[in-house]
Computed example of a mutant assay.
Amino acid sequence: MADFQAEPSVERLGVLICGHGSRNRLAVEEFAQMVEQLRPKLAPMPVEHGYLEFAQPILREGLESLRQQGVTKVLAIPAMLFAAGHAKNDIPSVLNTYTAETGLPIDYGRELGVDRLMVAAAGSRVQEALHRASDDIPVSETLLVVVGRGSSDPDANSNVAKVTRMLVEGFGFGWGETVYSGVTFPLVDPGLRHVVRLGFRRIVVVPYFLFSGVLVSRIRQHTDLVAADYPDVEFLSAGYLGQHPMVVDTFRERVDEVLRGDTAMNCSLCKYRAQVLGFEQDVGRAQESHHHHVEGLAESCTLCERECTGACQPNGVPLEAHSHEHEHEHGHHHPPYPHAEHPLGPLTLSQTSKASKDFPRNP
Rank of each mutant, 00 (worst) to 15 (best):
G21N: 07
G62Q: 09
H49W: 11
M34P: 02
F31A: 09
A79D: 01
R60M: 05
M118P: 01
E64D: 15
E36M: 12
K73D: 11
E64T: 12
A100Y: 00
P57S: 11
I77G: 01
G113K: 01
E111K: 00
V114M: 10
Q69T: 14
A76I: 07
S93G: 07
A87R: 05
E30M: 14
G109D: 03
L75I: 15
E64P: 02
N96C: 14
N96Q: 15
I77R: 00
L95H: 00
T102D: 00
E64S: 05
Q33C: 01
R25P: 00
G70T: 03
V47F: 06
A27D: 06
V35C: 10
Q68A: 15
L66W: 04
E36I: 09
N89T: 01
V71D: 00
D107M: 04
F31D: 02
Q56G: 12
R60I: 09
A87L: 10
R23I: 12
P78L: 05
R67H: 10
K88S: 06
I91D: 01
A84G: 02
M118L: 11
M80H: 06
A55I: 03
Y108R: 04
N96L: 06
T72W: 08
P44A: 14
R60T: 15
P46G: 06
A84C: 11
I106F: 03
I91L: 08
L117F: 10
M118G: 05
S65R: 12
G50R: 09
V35K: 11
A43N: 04
Q33Y: 09
L42G: 09
M45F: 15
H86P: 02
Q33I: 09
R23P: 10
L66P: 02
A43C: 00
L59E: 01
D107C: 13
G103I: 01
E64L: 08
F31C: 02
V35A: 00
Q69S: 11
R110N: 08
A87V: 07
D90E: 12
S93D: 15
D90N: 07
G103K: 10
A55R: 03
N89I: 05
P92H: 08
R39W: 11
G62T: 13
L59H: 05
N89D: 11
A84R: 03
H49C: 10
E29C: 05
L117D: 02
P40R: 05
P105W: 09
N96T: 14
A43L: 08
I106K: 02
L52G: 04
R60V: 13
E53K: 08
K73H: 09
A27L: 04
A100E: 07
Q56H: 10
E61Y: 01
T97D: 09
P92Y: 03
V71T: 04
G50K: 01
E111G: 04
A84T: 03
M34A: 14
A55M: 04
V74R: 07
K73F: 00
T99P: 08
S65Y: 01
N24K: 03
P46C: 02
M80C: 12
A55Q: 08
